[in-house]
């Protein structure tokens, strides 16, 4: 379970002054569901997920994950969360086995437990061939598998995915999507951020559209289709953020486009 309540995050920027990256966001993700956070680049997806993973502290508002408060029980939250992002890389000079074992230890697992879980994960993800090779020699697919095993070693109840398919080839992206679905089927709470409309349509049970730091729409795909009277996710998205002009204005404001 993830419960975000009025989360707000501000940053100081030399040129633009105080920026509100996340503005009063509230939502709930339930176990056995995939919550899709859809937004353009710079909309505030990564910041929201970093707030949930306790990597950042909110300016105001609160979040509870797996029954723990993100502000006061940050270590407990991280112990029950698996965080996988395009920006969470692997140690190139360690082997896959060493990497996964390291994160098992950091999660306070006993050596025997780590060994047992590692074997299970390696079988499940088909990693046996490259388990004892260094990560810097891996293909993207092998890296992703290792990263997945790394996030799962402590069997977290909550999974946070921040654009996990970004820059991946089709086959690797598909295997990630399959893995995300598996997590849901095992009853985990999953939150998944992306800017790819088709991914949201395919896998998310509940969709939250984030724009300019605000959650502008939320609901199942069917509910959103009904509300915006569109079937195509992209059209729904553009309508939800207030039209193309609003999208362009927001992108200009953050400096993504001139």
């Amino acid at each position: 379970m993830i419960e975000a309540r009025n989360l707000t995050k501000t940053f100081k920027d030399k040129k633009r002054g105080i920026i509100t990256a996340v503005n009063d966001i509230s939502f709930t993700c339930r176990p056995g569901q995939i919550y899709g956070l859809l937004g353009a680049n710079g909309a505030g997806k990564t910041t929201t997920l970093r707030l949930l993973a306790t990597l950042l502290q909110p300016a105001s508002g609160s979040a509870r994950l797996a029954g723990f408060d993100a502000a006061t029980e940050a270590n407990q939250v991280r112990a029950h969360v698996g965080f996988l992002a395009a920006s969470t890389a692997l140690y190139g000079r360690l082997t896959a086995r060493e990497t996964i074992t390291y994160f098992g230890r950091l999660n306070g697992l006993a050596a025997a437990t780590i060994k047992e879980r590692l074997k299970g994960l390696a079988d499940e993800l088909d990693m046996r061939d490259f388990l004892d090779r260094r990560c810097d020699k891996f293909s993207t697919g092998m890296k992703q598998k290792t990263s997945i095993a790394r996030t799962l070693i402590h069997d977290p109840a909550v999974m946070i995915f921040d654009e996990p398919t970004l820059g991946l080839d089709v086959m690797t992206a598909r295997s990630i999507v399959k893995f995300v679905r598996d997590c849901r089927n095992r009853g985990k709470t999953v939150i998944y951020s992306t800017h790819v409309m088709s991914e949201v349509e395919k896998i998310c049970d509940v969709i939250g559209i984030i724009h300019d730091g605000r959650l502008v729409a939320e609901g199942t795909l069917a509910e959103l289709r009904q509300r915006y009277e569109e079937t195509d996710m992209e059209e729904i998205f553009v309508k939800a953020v207030g039209g193309e002009a609003a999208l362009v204005a927001a992108l200009k404001n953050q400096g993504t486009i001139p």
Binding site: L55, A79, T88, A89, L90, L106
Partner: peptide, 14 residues
């Protein structure tokens, strides 16, 4: 630079 810092900070270690 290599992006492993964020991975490390996700662990429950203080």
């Amino acid at each position: 630079e290599r992006g492993t810092m964020e991975t490390l900070l996700c662990s429950p270690v203080h």
